[in-house]
Design a protein around this nucleic acid. Structure first.
Lengths: 138, 138
DNA sequence: CTGTATCCCACTCGATACTG
DNA sequence: CAGTATCGAGTGGGATACAG
């Protein structure tokens, strides 16, 4: 029983894992993909609107995450010099290139919840837990 | 200048963001997607082999992450009762359903690194930094 | 070989109060 | 309205030593 199969031999292995790390690091954290999704699917939003649509996020976190996304060119921030200033956030065309992947992740997550729920149902019922990733502790 | 576009109206918005959270939570952390990638692209591996291929991971982390992946049915663990026991880890057919998404993320990350590098090059050169996500501090 | 157990630091994130 | 500042709890993850 041999273990090393290596269907895809070397082919710049280091560069590829680094690329994966880059992508994951950028999307890491509790909020960034959600913000991206909202901006992708619901269009341009003001700060407060965003905070309402991304359920549970604090102003501090929203600010910080938006800064990262803007620095990485996924989101554009526009200040409107209205009476009290308002700020518009929108996804950039470049940010849009992530939409397809995020939507796939969403679909996968839908199926995963079904799968884990039915696998766990016999033991204990997770009614509507907002998170279901099975952890060693459980 | 109206902000609410709502190209995709309601359509179970809560359920979808929850699904996205499920997926992201499962993949969260420094190592899980890397482990998945290695098992997908390089085939069945023993514990020590995995630790060598996932560069920099400690035994503790590798154990913990593999447990989560196994509990979520992405990875199968098989103990071989050899002289000193050996353990085989392999991706499950279900885990394979993530491969497509992960490979897309990898591609995206490749492009992103190029983009950020060239955008930042004029200011400071990031030679071969293992991570490049642009952060507010920089 | 394949893990576990501990210790520990840094960082994430929430809560709250404050500002232009 | 759109943030910033500060504090503090909890956690992710590294280092090291130990175990079956």
């Amino acid at each position: 029983m041999k273990t090393t199969v290596n269907r895809y031999p070397e082919c710049d292995y280091k560069g590829k894992t680094r690329a994966l790390n880059d992508a994951m690091e950028l999307l890491q954290g509790k909020w960034k993909v959600l913000i991206i999704t909202v901006l992708c699917c619901r269009g341009r939003k003001r700060f407060t609107e965003l905070q309402q649509e991304v359920e549970g996020i604090s102003a501090k976190m929203l600010t910080r995450e938006l800064q990262v996304l803007e620095l990485n060119q996924l989101v554009q921030r526009t200040v409107c010099s209205t009476k009290p200033v308002t700020v518009q956030y929108e996804i950039t065309p470049y940010g849009k290139t992530l939409e397809k992947i995020v939507l796939q992740l969403m679909d996968w997550g839908l199926g995963h919840r079904r799968r884990i729920m039915s696998a766990t149902l016999s033991v204990s019922s997770l009614p509507d837990s907002s998170s279901l990733c099975v952890q060693p502790g459980s």
